[in-house]
Design a binder for these strands. Structure first.
Lengths: 244, 244
DNA sequence: ACAGCTTCAATTGTCTGACAAATGATTTTT
DNA sequence: AAAAATCATTTGTCAGACAATTGAAGCTGT
């Protein structure tokens, strides 16, 4: 069995130590994907702690998506295959909180997001499929409809940019960018988009989609740069109006 | 008080529902940084569950760095200010597991990493401080010493590239890149670096540092591109030799 | 032999009640 | 006034119990 009857350190909480031990076993490959961990009763034996303590440790791991648990005779805790989609959620929550709690100003967040996104543009121009293009066009169309709430407009904006990033065909990039693109949405939601500014954004989105379709990386990067500049300017306007 | 005596849904586990409720309160600002949550006893009352169940919920949140707990008369659970440094660790663990569990090939991971890193180069060329440069030079020096283990060489490589990224002076970028740069290290560790290839890498690092120092963004990007190409080639050699 | 039903055993989910350990506040003592 | 002892509160840990779930095993009727 994986875990010897080992005595743990003192000082730190037992559930933390146990969670660490299991996490390390997962990371270094001692426990492999879909492998079943010992039952809670067995683990309490192995680590010489009570079942509630073991459970707290397992809940810590579950919160990180490292294990899943199921009840029943064949149930138990299993090492989870961490999927990109699952990781998106964590990434977005963490990034959102980081921005809101550390009072990152809009400009900094915007710079990070567009810097990373521009980096994806050349790959996307080369590799995007028809589906990516279709999504981008569809979102542009949605954005140009009147009567769209600011939230819906922002959500569509996110969808547009994710299609652009996904077009690069690199899941690692998509994962990394998920945080950057989505975390900024709450900040964007503070902006009120006038008909005039929506029009401008739609025009830039169209320019981007055209460039991606044509395989014109430079053009896409330039349009993204213009979009960043315009977005920051909009945010400044809002801030200025707030001060009045 | 924040949480009304609310009845929860059925089906999903209670500790998950409670954790979600508190997490949402943190995200939407109902609970602010450093605010103290009700004691475990109070929470069990509020949610009509037992204390172990409340504790499992709190441990889930603690695993995500959303709260910290302290014992004693004035202790309790407090909303944690999520710091960038704390988030680095999570990001790296998650990214590492994503790569190893999803069998992302080296080339894809490498492409993502260098694509993002190249995006940081222009900003770093503009804003890097003397300290960033000094770190880069020091790591280059370390890398050129003989008798360095492959692991130490890789670790120094990571430190070099982090200094480059940090030079951009955008904490959001640094955070995002931490995962990309560090997660690839385990994959890099499978490469055996010959004296010849170390020499080559050191030369490219020097080229990068020179370009950053001179504010020459294009040159830095070109050198990074060359480094990516060389790294991928090295990995291919290793794979080819393995097949023999 | 096979399909459907019942029973069973293992496992997680939840509860109760208790005690230990830590720790700031309070009181007492010097 | 300073130091020491005490206290109250809160988290950490434990033991034991029962409920709920669920696949497996066994049984039954055809």
């Amino acid at each position: 069995m994986i875990f010897m009857k080992t005595e743990l350190e003192t000082k730190r909480e037992l559930s933390v130590q146990i969670a660490d031990a299991i996490r390390n076993a997962i990371i270094n490959g001692t426990l492999i994907v879909d492998e079943r961990l010992p039952s809670e009763a067995e683990l309490s034996d192995k680590f010489n702690v009570s079942r509630p303590t073991v459970r707290e440790a397992l809940k810590r791991l579950a919160a990180q998506n490292l294990i899943r648990t199921m009840r029943g005779a064949t149930g138990g805790a299993f090492v989870n295959r961490l999927r990109f989609e699952d990781a998106y959620g964590q990434q977005i929550t963490t990034s959102t909180l980081l921005l809101s709690m550390n009072e990152v100003d809009f400009e900094t967040a915007c710079e990070a997001r567009f810097t990373l996104e521009r980096a994806c543009a050349p790959l996307s121009a080369k590799r995007r499929t028809g589906e990516h293009l279709a999504t981008m066009r569809a979102e542009i169309h949605r954005q140009s409809q009147s009567g769209l709430s600011d939230e819906a407009f922002c959500a569509s904006d996110v969808a547009f940019h994710r299609a652009l990033v996904d077009g690069a065909g690199n899941p690692v990039l998509s994962y990394q960018l998920a945080g950057a693109v989505e975390a900024i949405e709450p900040l964007m939601n503070m902006i009120t988009f006038s008909a005039r500014s929506r029009e401008q954004i739609v025009a830039l989105h169209t320019e981007i989609a055209d460039a991606i379709e044509a395989g014109a990386a430079d053009q896409a990067e330039a349009a993204l740069k213009a979009l960043e500049k315009y977005t920051v300017a909009l945010a400044h306007d809002v801030a200025a109006r707030r001060r009045d």
